[in-house]
Design a protein around this nucleic acid. Structure first.
Length: 254
DNA sequence: AAGTCTGCCAACCGCCCGGAA
DNA sequence: GTTCCGGGCGGTTGGCAGACT
């Protein structure tokens, strides 16, 4: 798919937008012959009506030899996820670990593919944890069910110790791998939970802490008002982590 | 068939950093 | 120490193509 930005001329007479084949040829030929030591000067010497910045971008992201513009492999995707987990939005640093890939294409790939996949997994994990947190043997019912049935049951949340959590997840993985049992009917499995905890390390300590908040009612408004005060209960957690937690593990009414 | 929506990605913009003057 | 400037970075936008209604 050829992306074409409308060509325009800025107030200094510089061309903006899509590059023509002639411009590409000029830029490529010039850099291959003379290199690029001074981007602002380069377009003048190369006979291009472009800014140095524009030339640099075109070269780095499109014309430079050795660029890999094909689809991302699964290995590359995994590496990107791992590096992003470690480095955040440091696209250039991530790109440095992937030969032939530019920061721009990794950034685009992230926004297009990876984020979408992780969002999907987050939803699966959320469903898995709701089932875990509120097992079917409990008198608790999910809020929408409660709303439907006008129930007013209560639930006393419990937390697992670190070892219990690990035991729990490893057992789940074992049962999943040995006889194909899924942790929940939603399709999420323990492995996904473990992966999600790896993605958000702070959640591990959060989830396994002994602290138990006030009894939570099934009434949706009461639940949400309880959540709104959780920041006070967990001052050591960043707002972002709390948001992530609520997003992953708690109810959504939207 | 036509209109609308969505995904994708090239390219731009504004900001920041580091080195030179 | 300060200012200037080039290079680089991350975020955002523009617009095409294909999917969907």
């Amino acid at each position: 798919m050829e992306m074409v930005r409308t060509l325009s001329i800025d107030e200094n007479g510089m061309r903006k937008g899509a590059w023509s084949k002639e411009e590409d040829s000029k830029l490529r030929a010039f850099i291959q012959r003379y290199g690029h030591h001074n981007w602002p000067q380069l377009p003048k010497d190369a006979g291009l009506s472009r800014t140095g910045k524009s030339c640099r971008l075109r070269w780095v992201n499109y014309l430079k030899p050795g660029l890999n513009r094909g689809n991302f492999s699964q290995e590359e995707e995994q590496l990107i996820i791992k590096l992003h987990q470690k480095l955040g939005n440091k696209w250039s640093a991530i790109a440095a670990k992937l030969p032939g890939r530019t920061d721009n294409c990794i950034k685009n790939f992230w926004h297009g593919h990876v984020k979408k996949r992780l969002d999907k997994e987050k939803n699966n994990v959320k469903n898995a944890e709701i089932s875990h947190c509120f097992p079917s043997t409990s008198t608790f019912q999910l809020p929408h069910q409660a709303d439907q049935e006008k129930l007013d049951t209560t639930y006393e949340p419990t937390r697992l110790s670190n070892s219990a959590f690990l035991q729990y997840t490893s057992n789940s993985i074992e049962s999943h791998s040995s006889n194909g049992l899924m942790l929940t009917s939603s399709g999420a499995n323990a492995k996904q939970i473990v992966e999600s905890v790896e993605l958000f390390p702070e959640l591990m300590s959060f989830w396994t802490e002994p602290f138990v908040p006030d009894t939570i009612s099934c009434d949706s408004e009461q639940i949400m008002s309880s959540y709104s005060s959780w920041e006070e209960h967990f001052p050591h957690l960043s707002t972002k982590s709390l948001d992530n937690f609520l997003d992953m593990y708690c109810f959504s009414y939207s």
